[in-house]
């Protein structure tokens, strides 16, 4: 089986159609911004369009921001109809959008055939602990990145040694 990368605008056009029809859509996760909860090499998510009223702090949403960028991040804050989003794996970067920009929410995560409901009380608790770690999050993310990118790190070290 081959993996083919397509740009987001192309990919999400049909996905968005199916979501509007009321179908759940299963997609692969791309990018590292939702670490440690979503991992791009392993995870798939099931998306579902829901009423905008239910969107609250802690919900992971797929948003189409400013009509150009598709983002799968967690709601950090909700102010009326305005949402502030942040990837669990991002430190300072946040995004702002309206509830109407939300195409779907993550209903569950699928890793190696095993389904996890990320909105369950337990996983919501994990997420809230993680996102309230502030400075520690930075250190833990660094360690996580190093641990999972061992090969990359070794390459970098090798390169350094050669230079010496």
């Amino acid at each position: 089986m081959q993996t083919k990368k397509i740009d987001n605008n192309t990919f999400f056009a049909p996905v968005s159609e199916f979501l509007k029809e009321g179908k759940d859509v299963r997609i692969r996760v791309r990018g590292r911004s939702m670490l440690p909860f979503l991992n791009q090499d392993k995870d798939e998510v099931m998306l579902r369009k829901i009423s905008t009223q239910i969107i609250e702090k802690g919900t992971i949403v797929l948003a189409h921001i400013d009509g150009r960028q598709y983002i799968l991040h967690r709601v950090l804050r909700r102010d009326g109809d305005t949402l502030i989003l942040r990837g669990d794996g991002n430190i300072g970067t946040t995004e702002e959008c309206g509830v109407e920009d939300v195409m779907a929410v993550v209903q569950k995560k699928i890793r190696a055939g095993k389904e996890t409901d990320l909105s369950s009380p337990l996983w919501s608790f994990y997420a809230s602990v993680w996102n309230n770690l502030h400075f520690c999050r930075r250190i833990l993310l660094f360690i996580y990145n190093v641990a999972t990118e061992e090969k990359y790190l070794l390459k970098k070290l090798n390169f350094k040694q050669q230079k010496l």
């Binding site: 056009a13 299963r26 692969r28």
Partner: peptide, 25 residues
Amino acid sequence: LCEVGNEYVIVAHGLENINFSKVMN
């Protein structure tokens, strides 16, 4: 059968969901 950009792919769907994680070109 579904069009993604200018490509054709086959996606699997159940009664309520569509799987875009594995498609056939």
